[in-house]
């Protein structure tokens, strides 16, 4: 019987006036996302990779242009293409980090047991998954914008040395930058869906990185037409097409921006639908 016992509970705050709401769940998921170190690290790395790759790419392109007399006299859209190509180069690598983060956002809850707290507070479960998706999508999109637009300014500064310029106001410039950021956000959401279905960090990361890195290479090596025909429909191929294609509408040679976006949305939609069904059905 020591004296160090806290007083009996006081219910000073009328907490009971509040109730469960989707905005509340959104706020909760935002607190969860920003209060983990892995999020801060991942987003920091996405931006660092984007800037670093833009620096390397633009320096190497500027050197390859030998003083740049030809490039500087090229038409404006050709000049813009040089700068944009350098600006979105980091997205190839950034997508791997975004994918890992997407898996961890949900698999980390399963591995630590946090998911049981989450589902006790939001017993219908799907709203929690939906809120997680919205928060991850918006945060990754904003980080992606900082990464690609930052890379654009860095590349512009490098290309300015040889007189090659690009205007951020030109659709040929800002659309690929937006598209690159959008792809990062969508691959994070796709990975969230995979992580929710597999409930394991190792399994989820292996699955999404395998799909991004391994599957296209393997299909490339299969000496059959069908294998090569499938490649453009893969998530990473269509994703890249969202910001590297020069045409908006499909042509005989390429899908164009909109069709590629549609394919990516199909992958994301399938992963999230599977996740929603399994999250509802399974014991937690």
């Amino acid at each position: 019987m020591t004296a160090i016992t806290p007083a009996p509970p006081q219910h000073a705050t009328p907490a009971r006036a509040s109730r469960l709401s989707f905005t509340g769940v959104l706020r909760s998921e935002w607190i969860k996302l920003r209060s983990l170190r892995s999020t801060v690290w991942s987003y920091g790395i996405v931006i660092a990779i984007s800037l670093g790759m833009a620096l390397i790419m633009s320096l190497s392109m500027v050197n390859g242009m030998n003083g740049g007399a030809d490039a500087a006299s090229a038409p404006a859209d050709q000049q813009a293409r040089f700068v944009v190509e350098s600006s979105v180069f980091g997205v190839y690598f950034g997508q791997l980090v975004a994918a890992v983060l997407g898996v961890l956002v949900i698999s980390g809850e399963y591995s630590t047991g946090m998911i049981r707290s989450t589902f006790t507070a939001v017993p219908k479960r799907v709203p929690a998954l939906a809120a997680k998706t919205v928060v991850l999508f918006l945060a990754t999109y904003l980080v992606g914008l900082v990464a690609t637009v930052g890379a654009f300014f860095l590349s512009s500064a490098m290309f300015a040395a040889i007189g090659v310029t690009a205007s951020l106001a030109a659709p040929g410039v800002f659309l690929p930058l937006l598209g690159g950021a959008l792809y990062l956000a969508l691959i994070a959401v796709f990975s969230l869906g995979v992580g929710a279905m597999l409930r394991s960090s190792a399994g989820g990361i292996a699955a999404v990185l395998g799909l991004i890195l391994l599957v296209p290479t393997v299909l490339q090596m299969i000496p059959a037409d069908w294998a090569h025909d499938v490649i453009p429909y893969l998530l990473p191929s269509a994703g890249m097409g969202m910001f590297t294609t020069t045409t908006a509408v499909a042509t005989a040679d390429e899908f164009g921006v909109w069709l590629n976006l549609l394919i990516v949305l199909g992958w994301v939609g399938a992963a999230m639908a599977g996740a929603a069904v399994l999250v509802r059905r399974r014991d937690a």
Partner: peptide, 17 residues
């Protein structure tokens, strides 16, 4: 979640309601 502080855990749980 082992990577989150106790206060942030409570704030996240509280926010839902």
């Amino acid at each position: 979640h082992t990577g989150r502080t106790a206060e942030n855990h409570l704030l996240a749980m509280a926010a839902t309601h």
